[in-house]
Computed example of a mutant assay.
Amino acid sequence: MKDFFYGIQDLFVDVLFAPLDWLRELELTNWWGANTISWIFMIIGFLAFVYWMLELKKYNDNNEEDKSVSAHSYL
């Protein structure tokens, strides 16, 4: 049973977290590279937010939502 848990440890430490080790080394050697990756994630999140807001506006403009007081049973 002990080998099973050591196998899980090896999988995560040596295989699945290897890209994170690479990012840590990149941050120590190249500040611009590490921050570029962060900015890419921030841009992706911002684009997803804008897309979601446009979808909500589209449904709101079509009046597809029931906005009456008794629309939801918990109200």
Score class of each variant (00 low, 15 high):
Leu75Glu: 06
Asp10Ser: 09
Val69Arg: 07
His72Val: 08
Thr29Arg: 03
Leu47Lys: 01
Lys57Ile: 12
Thr29Trp: 03
Leu23His: 13
Glu64Gly: 14
Leu11Tyr: 12
Gly7His: 02
Asn63Ser: 15
Phe5His: 10
Lys2Pro: 15
Ser38Phe: 11
Ala71Phe: 02
Gly7Gln: 03
Leu54Thr: 10
Asp3Tyr: 11
Ile37Ser: 11
Trp32Ser: 15
Lys58Asn: 13
Pro19Gln: 08
Ile37Ala: 10
Trp32Gln: 14
Tyr59Lys: 08
Glu65Leu: 15
Leu47His: 00
Ile8Phe: 13
Ser38Trp: 09
Pro19Met: 03
Val69Phe: 07
Phe5Val: 14
Leu26Phe: 04
Ser68Pro: 06
Phe4Ile: 04
Gly33Glu: 02
Trp22Ala: 13
Ala48Arg: 08
Thr36Asn: 06
Glu55His: 01
Trp32Arg: 13
Tyr51Phe: 09
Thr36Ser: 15
Leu75Met: 09
Leu28Val: 04
Tyr6Cys: 09
Lys2Cys: 11
Val50Trp: 08
Pro19Gly: 08
Trp31Tyr: 03
Ser70Tyr: 07
Val13Asn: 05
Phe17Asp: 00
Ser73Ile: 11
Trp52Arg: 02
Ile8Ser: 07
Val50Phe: 04
Asn63Glu: 12
Phe49Cys: 05
Tyr74Phe: 13
Gly7Met: 05
Tyr51Gly: 04
Ile8Val: 10
Asn60Thr: 11
Asn30Val: 06
